[in-house]
Amino acid sequence: MFIFLSKKMKAVYLDKDTKELAQRYDELSYSQLAHGIKMINLLGIKPADQVLDIGCGTGKLALHVSEIVGPRGRVIGIDPLVCRVEIAKKRAKANLLFEVGSSDDLYRFADNSFDCVYLNSVFHWIEKKEETLTEIKRILKKEGKLGLTTGDKNQNTPIRSIIENAVIKILGYKPEEGVFSPFSLGTQEIQSLIEKSGFSIDLFQVDEDSFYSDTAEQILEFFESSSFGNFLSQIPQEYKPHVVEEIKKELEKLRTPRGIERKHRIVTVICKKL
Rank of each mutant, 00 (worst) to 15 (best):
M1E: 11
K8Y: 14
A11R: 11
V12C: 11
D15R: 10
E20H: 04
G36S: 13
G44S: 06
I45E: 02
A48N: 15
Q50R: 05
L52N: 07
L52I: 05
D53A: 03
G59T: 03
K60F: 10
A62F: 00
V65Q: 08
I76E: 14
D79H: 05
D79L: 00
K90L: 12
R91C: 05
F98S: 08
E99K: 12
S103T: 12
D104T: 15
D105W: 04
L106M: 04
F109M: 12
D111M: 08
S113R: 11
D115C: 01
C116G: 10
E127W: 03
K129V: 14
E131Y: 12
T132H: 01
L133R: 02
E135N: 06
I136V: 15
K137R: 14
E143V: 06
T150F: 08
Q155R: 12
Q155N: 12
P158C: 11
A166L: 05
I168R: 13
L171Y: 05
G172L: 07
K174N: 03
P175T: 12
S181D: 11
S184T: 13
S184K: 02
I190S: 00
Q191K: 15
L193V: 10
F199W: 04
I201N: 08
D207M: 03
E208K: 12
E221K: 08
F222D: 11
N230V: 01
I235V: 13
H242N: 02
E245T: 02
I247D: 06
K249P: 02
K253E: 06
T256L: 11
I260K: 01
K263H: 08
K273Y: 04
